[in-house]
């Protein structure tokens, strides 16, 4: 039996396999032990998050930018799945894709429906600078927390928490942060109404 294998493809495959082995050997001591499928899924989700984020920022069309956001949310939901919390993953999809994105889309559609939106021009350099500056705030908060508490994880493999325990936790131990988050939403909503409310009297431009 004679096998017709293209020597070039063979060589390339061999090279790739060797490179992956080399990388695994290099990073091996620093990576937690997990199934190869977990690493594959992680790579997939990271790619989805980064590509989606780039699309959301760089797309010159608001609807396409929003599809990038949807891709990012999908990736984040996948990350929750990898962390053994399917409930959180599904909630992420239910709330962010099913409700928030649809509402954002609705708002975009009500304003204009041309595929070349008002956001088509690149923002000035100063705006980009401010955008980069705003990165410092989350870093300033999250950085020390990660440095102080990052290494205190009890187990390397995520623990599967039953949904019932999650609910009990939200209503007993963590009830205060839970309610505080609701207050943030309430403030945002009240602010939106305050900004958009024009009073009961019709404005000069209105008919009737």
């Amino acid at each position: 039996m004679e096998q017709h294998v293209n020597p070039i493809i063979d060589a390339v495959l061999g090279y790739i396999a060797g490179f992956i082995q080399y990388l695994a050997g290099l990073l091996g001591p620093y990576l937690p032990e997990a199934h190869w499928a977990a690493y594959l899924a992680f790579a997939l989700y990271v790619t989805a998050i980064i590509l989606g984020g780039l699309l959301a920022i760089l797309a010159r069309n608001l609807v396409r930018a929003m599809m990038g956001l949807v891709l990012t949310f999908l990736g984040v939901a996948g990350m929750y799945l990898l962390l053994a919390s399917p409930f959180l993953a599904f909630m992420q999809l239910l709330i962010y894709v099913g409700a928030i994105c649809v509402l954002v889309f609705f708002a975009i559609m009500l304003t204009h429906n041309s595929s070349e939106g008002e956001e088509s021009k690149l923002p000035p350099l100063s705006a980009l600078g401010y955008g980069l500056l705003s990165l410092i705030a989350p870093l300033a908060v999250a950085g020390p927390l990660i440095i102080l508490h990052g290494s205190k994880l009890k187990s390397k493999v995520p623990v599967d928490t039953p949904t019932g325990d999650l609910g009990k936790g939200l209503l007993t131990e963590y009830v205060l942060p839970f309610e505080l988050i609701s207050i943030v939403l309430l403030v945002a909503m009240a602010g939106a109404v305050f900004l958009a409310f024009r009073g009961f009297a019709p404005l000069k431009g209105d008919k009737e």
């Binding site: 399917p86 599904f90 999809l93 894709v97 099913g98």
Partner: peptide
């Protein structure tokens, strides 16, 4: 264990597709 949440979560894509 979260069957119905899965259904409700992915049902949101239907609305999104209609919108798109």
């Amino acid at each position: 264990p979260d069957g119905i949440i899965l259904i409700l979560a992915f049902a949101g894509f239907g609305v999104l597709s209609n919108l798109l």
